Amino acid sequence: MLIKILIAVGGYYLYRRSKGRRRPRTSHLARTAPRSADAIGAAGEVATQAKLRETLRWLCGDEFYLHDGPLVIEHAPGTAFPTAEIDHLAVTPFGIFIFETKNWSGHIAPSVLPGNLTRTSHSGETEDRRSPLAQNRTKLRFLREQLPDMWPVAGAGVFTSPTAVLHRDLPIDLFSLNDLPYWLRHKRDSCKERSPVDVRRATAAVLMYADTSITALTDHKARVTTEPDFSTGINPSD
């Protein structure tokens, strides 16, 4: 009897040790918790960056510049908001392009408020959000003022979520990720009569106004923590 008890105790001890070594299970709540808005936005930017690189290689071969990640430019030194963030910068022989990425889901339509778009969720709730084109406006104006007229500068808003449905009356410069190659091809074809952009010189000219320090993006985000007022169209990150 004593031997049986010892064997049972030893078996239980080994069982407890093996169970303790197992990787703890992730709770159901942790598995199903939604990702943060920042994580969702970052995923959309990664997808756009990959699509841009693929498309530019298709159109331009090796003759292009695609900035690696967001770029902070100093467009208003001495003011409360001296910097602006560009999600994606591409320099090509047919123009300089900046892209604002949005990973919004639901139905995206024009808004009655200038500079805004109306998003309707899958549950039917509506809200107005700042249009990517409005967010690009200040950046485009700044670059056009600083760069030679012979270098076309344009911007667009890219919606990356596969569940986003775009209204037919949205401007042509707002499109889904899958339409990015066609938009850029149209830009290339519309510039065939112009002299090609010197990609190297144009890139250097744009980066003259960039803050490329390690803390540039963090510092910029800290300055624009003020919540945008959608009713007035004021957004300090524009």
Rank of each mutant, 00 (worst) to 15 (best):
L140P: 00
C60I: 10
K139F: 01
F142V: 02
T120G: 01
V72F: 10
I73E: 02
G106C: 09
E74Y: 02
R141N: 06
A109Y: 07
S105N: 01
Q49V: 03
S121F: 07
L59Q: 12
E63V: 09
Y65V: 15
T118R: 14
I98D: 04
P132G: 12
R53Y: 03
S111D: 07
K139M: 14
K51H: 10
L52K: 08
G78N: 13
E85H: 00
A50C: 03
P110L: 11
V91C: 10
W58P: 00
I98F: 04
L117E: 03
T126Q: 15
E54P: 00
A84P: 01
G115H: 05
R141V: 02
L52I: 08
I96E: 02
L89Y: 03
A84S: 15
D62Y: 01
R129T: 13
D62L: 05
V91Y: 05
A90L: 11
A80W: 03
V91G: 02
I73K: 00
T126Y: 00
L133T: 13
P77I: 13
L113Y: 08
F94H: 02
L89F: 10
R57W: 03
H67S: 05
P110G: 09
S131I: 07
P93Y: 03
V72S: 08
E63A: 09
R53N: 13
P132N: 10
R144N: 04
S121H: 14
T120E: 10
S131K: 05
E63F: 00
P93R: 02
A80L: 12
S121M: 08
P77D: 11
K51E: 15
K139N: 09
F99R: 08
I108R: 04
L71K: 08
G69R: 02
R137M: 05
Y65K: 05
P132H: 09
L71Q: 04
L71I: 14
G106L: 03
P93M: 07
I96D: 07
R57E: 09
S105Q: 10
T92K: 07
L52T: 01
H67N: 12
H107M: 04
H88I: 01
F94R: 00
R130F: 10
N136D: 03
H75E: 01
C60E: 12
T120I: 09
E125L: 12
L66H: 14
A50V: 15
Q135F: 06
L66M: 13
L56C: 06
L59M: 11
V72M: 13
T138Y: 04
H107N: 13
E63I: 03
Y65S: 12
Y65C: 14
E85P: 09
T92W: 11
R57T: 06
L133A: 12
E63L: 11
L56W: 12
P82W: 14
G95I: 01
G115F: 01
R144E: 07
Y65A: 10
A80F: 00
A90V: 11
L113M: 06
D68Y: 02
F99S: 12
F94Y: 07
T118P: 00
Y65D: 07
R141C: 01
H107T: 06
N103G: 02
G124M: 14
A80T: 11
L89D: 06
P132W: 14
K139D: 06
H122W: 00
R129V: 15
T120A: 03
V112H: 09
G124Y: 11
C60G: 05
L59P: 14
D128Q: 08
E127A: 11
A134E: 11
L143S: 06
P77E: 15
A80R: 14
N103Y: 00
I86F: 06
R57D: 04
F94I: 05
F94P: 03
